[in-house]
């Protein structure tokens, strides 16, 4: 794996990393937004590369630009300048429909607030991304993943009938059920108590190892960041440190 700050050239990547396929590669991406006071820079030029099967933690204070970077890397947002290449496809050259197609093929998400649909049961929440892909075995696969996260007895429960930890397990099952190549997690334990959070982390990494998924996550939790192979810290829209 190679994590590069804006000052670090891609050529400086380690020899072992260059042999691996890059799953996500950001080349000098920036993000500016217009405000009443003028243009606000959210991200300074950032370059980084995450190879297939590797895990990266993005840390930083609130408002540092972590979520913006995650959104750009996942193709949810577009950079003001620079390129993002996701599994060999340059997202900057695609319109929203093209990026959606890339996400459908490659990307899974886990969110801090779980983002389960309140009107759907646990099973239906997990089935949704599979159904959107037109997967005929959606129900079987969803059941299988819910079983793997230990919720086979809660298939027909609605989110409000589940605890926070259970809801996040449903969200994890939903993320892995569509077998994404890369998983983006936005503070996956942020809404959970520490013991529930620990169990969720364990589950997340276990599934990640089993599926061979690339993992990019935002976290404030030191324990979670340490479990990742790499971590970068962002402050004022720039990478201020990177550790292996």
């Amino acid at each position: 794996m190679s994590v590069l700050s804006s000052q670090v050239s891609l050529d400086n990547a380690t020899p072992s990393a260059t042999r691996l396929e890059p799953m996500v590669q950001a080349n000098a991406v920036t993000k500016h937004v217009p405000t009443q006071e003028g243009e606000l820079t959210i991200l300074q030029p950032i370059s980084l590369r995450v190879n297939a099967g590797e895990s990266l933690a993005i840390t930083g204070a609130s408002g540092s630009g972590k979520s913006t970077l995650l959104g750009i890397l996942a193709g949810l947002d577009v950079p003001s300048t620079g390129d993002v290449i996701l599994n060999g496809t340059n997202l900057s050259q695609l319109d929203e429909e093209g990026r959606a197609a890339v996400r459908a093929q490659n990307v899974g998400f886990i969110f801090q607030s779980f983002q389960l649909l309140p009107g759907l049961t646990a099973l239906e929440n997990v089935m949704l991304p599979l159904e959107l892909r037109g997967d005929k075995a959606a129900q079987t696969k969803a059941k299988e993943f819910l079983q793997r996260v230990g919720l086979d007895a809660r298939l027909h429960h609605y989110p409000q009938q589940l605890s926070g930890g259970e809801q996040q397990r449903v969200a994890i099952a939903r993320a892995f059920a569509s077998e994404p190549r890369i998983l983006f997690a936005d503070e996956p334990t942020g809404n959970l108590d520490s013991s529930t959070g620990a169990r969720i982390i364990e589950l997340l990494f276990e599934l990640n190892r089993a599926q061979g998924t690339t993992l990019i996550l935002i976290t404030h939790e030191e324990r979670l960041a340490q479990l990742c192979q790499r971590r970068i810290e962002i402050a004022a829209g720039a990478i201020v440190s990177s550790k292996e």
Binding site: E96, A100, F109, Q115, L132
Partner: peptide
């Protein structure tokens, strides 16, 4: 609105 944002993040296109 949130459901649509979720479905789009999961790769559903606007026409879909």
């Amino acid at each position: 609105t949130d459901q649509v944002a979720l479905m789009k993040s999961l790769g559903a296109s606007a026409p879909r």
